[in-house]
């Protein structure tokens, strides 16, 4: 993964960008796992671009406004995503590991 400070990571306005940046350095199993988990509230996640090439080009990943990511538990892979007025929960150990690595970069 390219150098990505926490500040730059949080500044990205597109979930697709964040997800693509994380996916770039993880095995294919992580790409398919991205669509798992459950939404805590609001509409279902639009980040279910499992297995498709170029997640960043998926129109459903286009968002307006900031996307906040909270790595709640690196061991279980629990990730909370905050976008608009929604909170989405995912369990993705591989993505969690990628986020943790990014945080240590």
């Amino acid at each position: 993964m390219a150098e990505m400070s926490r500040r730059k990571f949080l500044q990205h306005g597109s979930l697709g960008v964040a997800a693509a940046a994380a996916l770039a350095s993880v095995p294919n199993v992580a790409r398919t796992a991205l669509g798992s988990g459950s939404a805590r509230s609001g509409a279902a996640s639009t980040a279910g671009a499992a297995g498709t090439a170029g997640a960043a080009h998926d129109p459903e990943l286009a968002t307006t406004g900031p996307v906040m990511v909270h790595l709640a538990d690196a061991k279980t892979g629990e990730i909370h995503l905050y976008v608009g007025e929604r909170e989405l929960t995912r369990h993705d150990p591989a993505l969690a590991a990628a986020i943790a690595r990014a945080a240590r970069a």
Binding site: Q11, S41, G42, P66, V67, M68, G84, E85, E87
Partner: peptide, 11 residues
């Protein structure tokens, strides 16, 4: 950098 607070998530 943006000169503003950014809010997200449910109320």
């Amino acid at each position: 950098a943006a000169g503003q607070d950014l809010d997200a998530g449910p109320f």
